[in-house]
Simulated scan of single mutants.
Amino acid sequence: MKLESLAAFEVTLGPVLDLGDSQWGRRRVINIVGGTFEGPRLSGTILPGGVDWQVLHPDGMASIDTRCTLRTHDGAHLFLCTNGVRHGPPEVLRRLADGEAVDPAAYYFRLFCRFETGDERYRWLNRTLAVASGARTAEAVRYEAHTLA
């Protein structure tokens, strides 16, 4: 098995909506308001309307669950679902929460990516698994996605 570069994503986010503590942790909803992706086999824009449904756990770990729609440079529409985790030292997580610039090497942010489309040009994505390493900024999430070949 090897990793092959798929695309670099920049997902622009709206404000955090904090729903409070539940039995699973602190639930947060973050609207995806747009973005871009660019890579050797996949490029285009991230459409507004997606959402990141996060749960912050008592130990500081965030469970990530996103869904959004992509439009490729040549007009295809793709559904993207990511699941993952973000965790790190409490001081680093506090700085991220405060919107500070933090070196992504200071925390762990990994995603599993699944795609879905009916567009014949991109049906190969329906049968492809991808993983990504992410970074959080004040208004966006950036991640490099790689297919598992």
Rank of each mutant, 00 (worst) to 15 (best):
I64P: 13
Y143G: 00
R67L: 11
E38A: 07
R27S: 02
H87N: 14
W124K: 02
W24D: 14
Y143M: 01
L17N: 14
F79G: 11
S22G: 15
A97E: 15
A140D: 10
T36N: 14
P48C: 01
A145M: 08
A138D: 15
R110T: 02
L70F: 03
Q54F: 00
L125G: 08
W53M: 00
D18N: 15
Y122L: 02
A138Y: 15
L111S: 00
P58C: 05
W24S: 09
P40A: 13
R123V: 08
T128G: 02
L129N: 12
N31D: 15
A135S: 09
R71N: 04
H77G: 04
Q23D: 08
V85D: 04
V16F: 10
M61H: 07
E139Y: 06
P104C: 12
A97K: 02
E120W: 11
A140N: 12
G84C: 00
A7C: 10
L93T: 01
S63D: 04
L129A: 08
N31L: 06
A76N: 08
G50C: 00
L13V: 03
R26H: 08
S22F: 10
N83A: 03
Y108F: 11
N126D: 03
T82Q: 12
V141L: 11
S22C: 11
E91C: 05
G34N: 05
G84N: 01
V16Q: 14
G34W: 10
A145C: 10
A101N: 09
D98C: 07
R86V: 00
R136D: 09
G134D: 02
R71M: 04
P104T: 05
A140Y: 07
T147P: 09
L17E: 15
A106Y: 06
R121N: 09
L148I: 15
R86E: 00
R121D: 11
L80C: 15
S133P: 01
L148N: 03
R28N: 01
G25I: 09
C113F: 01
P15S: 11
E38W: 04
P104Y: 12
P48E: 00
T117W: 14
P104I: 07
E116D: 14
G44K: 10
G134L: 07
G14D: 03
V11Q: 05
L6N: 08
E91F: 06
L80T: 09
R136Q: 15
L19Y: 14
A130M: 02
A106K: 09
D74T: 14
N31Q: 12
I32G: 04
A140S: 15
D74Y: 07
H57F: 10
L13Q: 04
R110Q: 03
G14T: 04
F37P: 13
S43M: 13
W24Q: 12
P90V: 05
T12Y: 04
F112V: 13
P58T: 10
R136L: 14
L6F: 10
L13S: 02
R95Q: 03
Y108D: 08
D74H: 12
F115G: 02
S63H: 11
E38N: 12
P89K: 07
V141K: 06
L17G: 07
T36K: 14
S22H: 12
F109P: 03
H57Y: 11
I30R: 15
T147K: 09
G20E: 07
A130W: 02
P89R: 09
A97V: 03
M61W: 03
T147E: 13
E91R: 13
L13M: 11
E10I: 13
R94K: 07
P58L: 09
G25Y: 06
P89M: 05
